[in-house]
Amino acid sequence: MAAKSGSLSINSENIFPIIKKWLYSDHDIFYRELISNGCDAVTKLKKLDMMGEYSLPEGYKGRVDVIVDPEKKTLTFKDNGLGMTADEVEEYINQIAFSGATDFIEKYKDKSNSDQIIGHFGLGFYSAFMVADEVHIDTLSYKDGAKAVHWECDGGTEFSMEDGDKTDVGTTITLFLNEDCLEFCNEYKAREVVKKYCSFMPTEIYLSKANTKETQIIKEEEKLPDDEVLEEIEPEKKEAAEGENVEAAEGTEEPKKLKIRKRPELINETQPLWTKHPNECTKEEYLDFYRKVFQDYKEPLFWIHLNMDYPF
Rank of each mutant, 00 (worst) to 15 (best):
F16N: 07
S7W: 13
S12F: 06
I15G: 03
P264K: 00
P70T: 01
P57C: 00
Y286I: 00
M201L: 15
D28H: 13
H136R: 11
L48W: 12
G62V: 04
G156C: 06
V194F: 04
W274N: 03
A146H: 11
I29L: 14
Y24L: 13
G124Q: 08
F125C: 03
T139C: 05
I117L: 11
Q116R: 11
V42H: 04
T74D: 02
K298T: 13
T43H: 09
F16H: 08
Y126M: 04
D154Y: 09
K262H: 02
L266I: 10
E179A: 12
F302N: 03
G38T: 09
C39D: 03
K4V: 06
F312Y: 13
G243K: 03
G62S: 02
V68K: 02
D26W: 14
S36G: 12
S36K: 13
Y206I: 06
G156V: 10
T174E: 03
E232N: 02
D49M: 00
K21T: 14
E53P: 14
T139W: 08
V169A: 04
G155D: 02
K44H: 13
Y54F: 15
G100S: 10
Y197G: 01
G38R: 04
C185V: 09
F77T: 05
F77R: 01
E88N: 09
R32E: 10
N245Q: 03
G251W: 06
L301G: 08
E33L: 05
S114I: 14
L23R: 15
T282P: 01
L224R: 13
P202K: 00
A248D: 14
E253D: 07
E134P: 06
K61Y: 10
I260K: 02
N211F: 11
K72M: 10
M201N: 06
A146L: 07
W151V: 07
M161A: 03
T174H: 05
V246P: 15
P311N: 00
D133S: 15
N307Y: 06
V246H: 09
S5M: 13
K195C: 12
S99Y: 15
M308S: 10
Y197S: 01
V42I: 12
K256H: 00
G59V: 07
K47E: 14
H150P: 07
W303P: 03
T172F: 09
